[in-house]
């Protein structure tokens, strides 16, 4: 555990909590892509199946449980409790265009052809693109609430910090996982455009809106 890994995890946790609180406090999930949240729930479910097979640390287990619980709670709020506020008309990204190729790729490119390992690989690939429905929704409506941009910022920051963590681990521990690193790079790149808008607009007190 190094500082980049820890702050990455905390940044990830912050993102998840920010989103939950935003929906809970405003009693509305307007502007939030339910599809992205469904994909993240699927990501955590398929990745953390090792909760049943191996114990790494109390930290590891509790964080996994928190991530999974929060992602299911978020999906519940969007599709059940505050369904009336869900903006399904703008959440039109075709998720099968992500899930099917990612599923195929995880069968073809993995560390080991075993069920748990393929599901883990699937979750890594899927996480890298799971935010696309949300970004698509923002590009479609042309704007995002400021609190939603904070959520996206912490979510992007998390993977960027993981990249530094992997460089650190490569040099100091000889640890290197090509699948995680390539997917992590892809995931971080997807946020670059957003990071630019976040720094140039949101941090200067303006609302994030895209030119028509």
């Amino acid at each position: 555990m190094n500082i980049f890994r820890l702050t990455g995890d905390l940044s990830h946790l912050a993102a998840i909590i920010i989103l939950l609180l935003k929906i809970w406090k405003t009693r509305s999930c307007a502007g939030i892509s339910g599809k992205s949240q469904l994909l993240f729930a699927l990501v955590f479910t398929t990745r953390y199946l090792d909760l049943f097979t191996s114990f790494i640390s109390l930290y590891n287990t509790s964080m996994k449980l928190i991530y999974v619980a929060c992602s299911y709670a978020t999906v519940y709020l969007i599709y059940m409790k505050f369904k009336a506020t869900y903006d399904g008309n703008h959440d039109t990204f075709r998720v099968e265009f992500l899930v099917v190729p990612v599923g195929g790729l995880s069968f073809l490119v993995n560390h080991d052809f075993s069920p748990l390992e393929i599901l883990w690989t699937f979750s890594i690939y899927l996480e890298s693109v799971a935010i696309l429905p949300q970004l698509f929704m923002i590009s479609k409506t042309g704007e995002a609430e400021t609190i939603t941009t904070h959520y996206l910022f912490f979510l992007g920051l998390y993977r960027a910090l993981y990249l530094i963590n992997w460089i650190w681990r490569y040099y100091f521990e000889g640890f290197f996982d090509l699948i995680a690193v390539v997917a992590g790079v892809v995931q971080t790149i997807l946020y670059c455009d957003f990071f630019y808008l976040y720094v140039t607009k949101v941090l200067k007190g303006k609302k994030l809106s895209l030119p028509a």
Binding site: D50, Y162, D177
Partner: peptide
């Protein structure tokens, strides 16, 4: 690295 490593990352 070992192939069937324990996944300590989240």
């Amino acid at each position: 690295y070992t192939l069937l490593r324990e996944k300590d990352e989240l």
